[in-house]
């Protein structure tokens, strides 16, 4: 464990608390893409099957459990509790375009052709693009509630902080994980536009609005 990964994990944790807080405070999941949330739930379930057979640490165990449980809880909130506030007509990104390529890439580029390794690799590829439906929705509406932008910023910062973590691990442990690094670069890259608006506008007290 190093400081970058710890802060990254904490940002990830924070993003989930902010999202749940947003839904409960505004009693609405307006502006949140159900598709993106469903993809994250799938990412966690496919990546963390190693919980069943591979013990790493208490920290690792608790975090994995939390991410799986909280992502399912968010799906429950969106699909049942606050269902009327979710508008599927603006959440229209076709997730087949993300699921298909992630699956085929994981069959080709993996560390070992086994079920659990392919699931792990699939989850890495899928996570890197799972934010697409959410960003697409943002693009369509052209604006977002401030609290939603805090959620997205924390989520983006999480994967961005994994980049110095990998550099640190390369230097100190000689560890290179090309699959995670490539996907992490893609994932962080997708946030660059958003980060620009967030850091130049939202953090200066302005509303998140995209230029028309």
């Amino acid at each position: 464990m190093n400081i970058f990964r710890l802060l990254g994990d904490l940002a990830h944790l924070a993003s989930i608390f902010v999202l749940i807080h947003k839904i409960q405070k505004t009693r609405s999941c307006r502006g949140i893409s159900f598709k993106t949330q469903a993809l994250y739930a799938l990412v966690f379930v496919t990546r963390y099957v190693d919980l069943l057979y591979h013990w790493i640490s208490l920290y690792n165990f608790v975090m994995k459990l939390f991410f799986m449980a909280s992502s399912c809880y968010i799906l429950y909130l969106m699909k049942f509790r606050y269902r009327p506030t979710h508008d599927p007509s603006i959440d229209t990104f076709k997730i087949e375009y993300l699921l298909g390529p992630s699956f085929f890439l994981s069959l080709i580029f993996n560390y070992e052709f086994s079920l659990t390794e392919i699931m792990w690799t699939f989850s890495i590829y899928l996570e890197s693009v799972a934010i697409f439906p959410q960003l697409f929705m943002l693009q369509r509406t052209g604006e977002a509630e401030t609290i939603t932008t805090h959620y997205l910023a924390a989520l983006g910062i999480y994967r961005a902080l994994y980049l110095p973590n990998w550099i640190y691990r390369y230097i100190t442990q000689d560890m290179v994980d090309p699959i995670a690094i490539t996907a992490g670069l893609v994932q962080t890259g997708l946030y660059l536009d958003f980060f620009y608006v967030y850091f130049t506008k939202v953090l200066h007290g302005q509303k998140f609005e995209l230029p028309a």
Binding site: M1, I56, N165, D177
Partner: peptide, 10 residues
């Protein structure tokens, strides 16, 4: 080379 210790990452 398979970076096995990658599984400690979330």
């Amino acid at each position: 080379k398979d970076p096995q210790n990658r599984h400690d990452e979330l």
